[in-house]
Design a protein around this nucleic acid. Structure first.
Lengths: 233, 233
DNA sequence: CCAAAAGTGTTCGTACTACACCCATGC
DNA sequence: GCATGGGTGTAGTACGAACACTTTTGG
């Protein structure tokens, strides 16, 4: 954006996304953070797992490119999408200079189940990843850090759940992300006071215990953790 | 970073920086947030004020480009430098598709005084800016929001000050950034407990009151607000 | 002594924690 | 009834806000 150099040099601009969803861990049975990866089918890093993404499109906003690529490679519709960071080390890619604008997304459990899984798309537990292509391991680690810090002060947990949810479900989200148990009684009060949710008149019957009330996220309540650039997706 | 498209399309990648320093406001006399802008000398937006920056260099890390451009245009050496956001709207620049990786920096008051100021570089009070080139007004607003939110939980305020400082000086930084007065007594306790500073044995004499003790920032103390990607500059 | 800012003590209210206890359902 | 989780009450603790008060300098 300086005028002295009239033409900028060639740097390839990529857009990738770290997609998070919750799944029960096959061993522990507890809900944990999972993410889908795609297998690379050409060099560099042919055959290695990598974050879904692609080249930036001159006709599209970076946000739109992230959302589109996410749809195209995994068929997922994210309930939350936010820019994470722009990675610009010189030696990130052996094929040349690539700068990656990375996004992170949250999808609901039911939505995540719909994701096409196959030879070249597979879900992994976020803390049991293989060696990924490029610097993608470090990127996922950073995205996990952002998820874990942001869930404590911003209203994003509901993005893992459906339209309505019980407080136990919401608490499970926090427990999965923060990796520690939370007191149900205290969580209830805190959630009702500051998590931007409202009670509905419905309850869930069928469990062999008192039927829990359903809650709904209220987007009108001010979010103390919302940034001025929030996409409100 | 997808392999289906072999060659990415041409998008110009720029790097700009929002530089913050504290100066006394000429009217109120209170310390306030200021930033240097550079006047554009060619189209688009010829003659308008803009953030210092330039095109990304294929041989340099984005961080390095930000630091170098900052030095070249203002002669300033930042005591804090962090990536802010990557702006990628399609119509940001009338000259074509430009994606800007924007950084924000803090410089010390003595350092800021050294900055070359002239026909094409001038300092402005952060909340009294003229109409800037491109979307730079919105970018500065976002950077200000980040500064104001981050100063509350991370240890960055000392980056506005010299090697040693009194608690009154540190408090002035917080008051300037947060735009509200703070209780000196409570600030002292909070600062000594959680702001990562240590007492020195020196005091400042010369004022017509009790000589205040000097403190020093201690980088070894864990910063609760530090990100895993922190540049520790 | 006085003014001014440094620095200490104390009270109050709020908010989080731990945990006891009651409620409503399926079996 | 009994097991199970939903939901309420409450005491203990930590921390920030407000503000009175003491200390140490220059004039």
């Amino acid at each position: 954006m300086n005028a002295t150099t009239l033409r900028p040099p060639a740097i390839d601009l990529a857009v990738s996304t770290v997609i998070f969803a919750l799944r029960r861990h096959p061993e522990s049975g507890l809900p944990t953070v999972w993410l889908p990866l795609v297998r690379r089918v050409s060099d560099p890093f042919d055959g290695r797992w990598a974050l879904p993404g692609g080249w930036a499109d001159p006709a599209e906003t970076l946000d739109d490119t992230a959302a589109r690529k996410l749809r195209e490679t995994t068929r997922l519709e994210p309930s939350y999408l936010e820019q994470l960071y722009c990675f610009g080390e010189v030696d990130r890619s052996p094929s040349g200079r690539v700068v990656s604008v990375v996004y992170w997304a949250l999808v609901r459990a039911d939505e995540a189940a719909r994701a096409l899984e196959g030879e070249n798309v597979r879900w992994f537990a976020a803390d049991e990843l293989p060696d990924l292509a490029f610097d993608h391991n470090a990127i996922v680690d950073y995205a996990l850090w952002r998820l874990r810090t942001k869930v404590e002060y911003a209203r994003i947990a509901h993005a893992f759940l459906g339209e309505t949810f019980t407080l136990a479900q919401l608490r499970e989200v926090y427990e999965a992300v923060l990796q520690r148990p939370l007191d149900p009684a205290n969580f209830r009060r805190q959630a009702e006071a500051t998590r931007g949710i409202v009670r509905t008149d419905e309850v869930v019957t069928g469990g062999r215990h008192r039927p829990p009330r359903l809650y709904r996220y209220d987007p009108d309540l001010a979010d103390p953790g919302a940034s001025p650039l929030a996409t409100t997706a």
